[in-house]
Amino acid sequence: MSVLKVTDLHASIGDVEILRGVDLEVSSGEVHALMGPNGSGKSTLSHVLMGRDDYTVTSGSVTIDGEELLGLPTWKRARKGLFLTHQYPVEIVGVRVVDLVTAATDGEADAGGRIATEASRLAVRDEFLTRGVNVEFSGGEQKRAETLQLAVLEPRFAVLDEIDSGLDVDALRDVSRRIEAMTEETGLGVLAITHYARLLTELRPDRVHVFMGGRVVTSGGPELADELEAGGYDGLAARLGIEVPSPVAAAEKPLDPFATPGF
């Protein structure tokens, strides 16, 4: 049993504070959903957890089983058991999944064999394994390939950054089922970042956190997702007696065409 713990995490880009005191705790085998409107800082949280150097952490802590990850370079965080599925996986010409997995494990894993097994579970066709990673992949192929890497590398915790964006129904179901199976097979703990409740019909969360203005404003069970579905962020904010904060982070990339504006 492992615990990923985020305590009072603050982070900025330049002078702009994006994360304003994030607290979260995810245990092995659990699925936590982190839901928030565009610009609330959700994606920033995923990259700050992974250690992207565009952000400055000003205070707080991120631990796995008490071991501090802040201050470690990205690759070491990954080797401590943290995995990020990227919202926009970048194309890398000439680098196949097998090359990536071999390098990520210093050649220790039976990369070819494990990739073949996962490819059949996730319906990833061979042509996507022989090509450079993400090169000319559709949205669905990208997320299947992200999930394949997740399954092969077997981390302790996975942060899913809008894994539901750009996915068709079949791919969403395949990806969700595989991740859910990992929570049972390997005890994977999941932090699923989304602004779209559709994911949560496939990937059933144990806890739902609502993220606004760079922090978690309320947490609850799956019923919280239902409340958001019915009343939107405005309705929830009214119940909590807070204002929906103006965006702290501009959406960096084009919005998800599947997303309903305002949720």
């Binding site: 992974m50 992207r52 370079p73 990205t74 690759w75 990954a78 080797r79 995995f83 990020l84 990227h86 996986p89 970048v90 890398i92 010409v93 000439g94 680098v95 090359d99 990536l100 997995v101 390098a103 990520a104 494990t105 450079g132 890497q149 590398l153």
Partner: peptide, 30 residues
């Protein structure tokens, strides 16, 4: 080298020097 490519590989646990090697070799692969 594209920072996004580097970050992507490192987020999988690939050492920075290996990430660079993979990207350069991949660049020449075609």
């Amino acid at each position: 080298i594209d920072d996004d490519q580097r970050y992507y590989l490192e987020s999988r646990g690939v050492r920075p020097e290996d990430a660079e090697r993979l990207i350069v070799l991949g660049f020449f692969e075609d």
